[in-house]
Design a protein around this nucleic acid. Structure first.
Length: 179
DNA sequence: TCCAATATTATGC
DNA sequence: GCATAATATTGGA
């Protein structure tokens, strides 16, 4: 790639009922989305007014995140900058975006859709590398055995999102992975 | 180039 | 139900 270009993405906060999400933007679009850590607020240097395009992206992102938290599918998503991932990861993320709200798929199912039915573990790894949670419904991917699997940044979020969408399997009894 | 880790899955006891 | 082996991709030494 190019040399060490100080490509620091613009960080903007997204106020939600669950806290302030942190959206990271690059020149190509939304490059990352972080859960409310409750740590230091994203002090974006107000060296000047935000670019119009960036403001538009942030508006779309805010709506998308709000919709996702409400268990709904975002009507429109901002341009995503997924160049940070490999070709395989991008394929996985693209496949995840085809999963509608209220529906879940197993890691094996996603792997099979990619033409690599034996790459179940790789899919899980790619999901963990997902820079844009919520918008890319990585939380809708469950283990084939009915388990939640894992979730980078906090498994409680995954549980909360699934519960909101009404697809959270019962903690006792047999989880019906039947859509 | 090789080693180890990972948000899994299937099989055996 | 628990433990072990197998398989694919990635990042670092």
């Amino acid at each position: 790639m190019n040399t060490k270009t100080t490509h620091v993405p613009t960080r903007l906060p997204i106020a939600t009922t669950a806290g302030d999400f942190i959206a990271r933007y690059t020149a190509h679009g939304l490059a990352g989305l972080d859960f409310p850590s409750g740590a230091a607020p994203p002090s974006h240097d107000p060296t000047g007014p935000l670019p119009l395009a960036l403001r538009h992206w942030h508006d779309l992102t805010t709506r998308a995140v709000t919709a996702a938290l409400a268990g709904r599918t975002p009507a429109q998503l901002p341009p995503l900058d997924l160049t940070h991932g490999t070709a395989f990861q991008q394929s996985v993320w693209r496949e995840l975006q085809t999963i509608a709200a209220g529906q879940t798929r197993s890691y094996a199912q996603v792997a099979a859709a990619l033409g690599r039915p034996t790459a179940t573990r790789a899919v899980g790894s790619a999901c963990g590398a997902n820079p844009v949670p919520l918008l890319i419904p990585c939380h809708r991917v469950l283990a084939a055995a009915g388990g939640l699997g894992g979730f980078t940044g906090g498994l409680e979020w995954k549980r909360r999102l699934l519960e909101t969408e009404g697809v959270l399997p019962p903690a006792h009894g047999s989880p019906r992975r039947d859509a």
